[in-house]
Amino acid sequence: MKGVFRARGLVDGLGWGEALISKSPISFLGGVDPERGKIIDKSHELFGLSIDGKVLIFPYSVGSSVGAYVLYKLKENGKAPSAIINLKSDNVIVSGCAIAKIPLVDMVEGLSLIRKGDFLMVNGSNGSVIIY
């Protein structure tokens, strides 16, 4: 285990899974297919990858505020990430995770230690991330 790190807990809940890391922001409307849980923006570094069940890490969201409803749809379809970690969250991602019940944290102290595929436990209620 690499350690337990403090974060700002934004949306309550506990989520765990493998880390999937994007250095570039994500536009959920048009960038993610809520039916299959995959990144469909061809210009995105995670193009073609599944976010289903992953701990999805990206700096912040961009694009339409309808992205919030796309997160809700992902959850309804059982294709949502198990948790989301942002560098700094924004209104769209916060409200989307709130309605979809996806645990969300930002400002994680040990963010730079996380590698793709690391197993993570994200606690949105008390604001912590465990890196295994």
Partner: peptide, 23 residues
């Protein structure tokens, strides 16, 4: 309300507000 004791709509409402409030 946040725990859902007053129904789904208020639960979702308070989830949104408590999350935006923390942000």
């Amino acid at each position: 309300a946040l725990k859902g004791e007053y129904g789904e709509a208020l639960e979702i409402g308070y989830r949104i507000l408590s999350s935006i409030g923390r942000l």
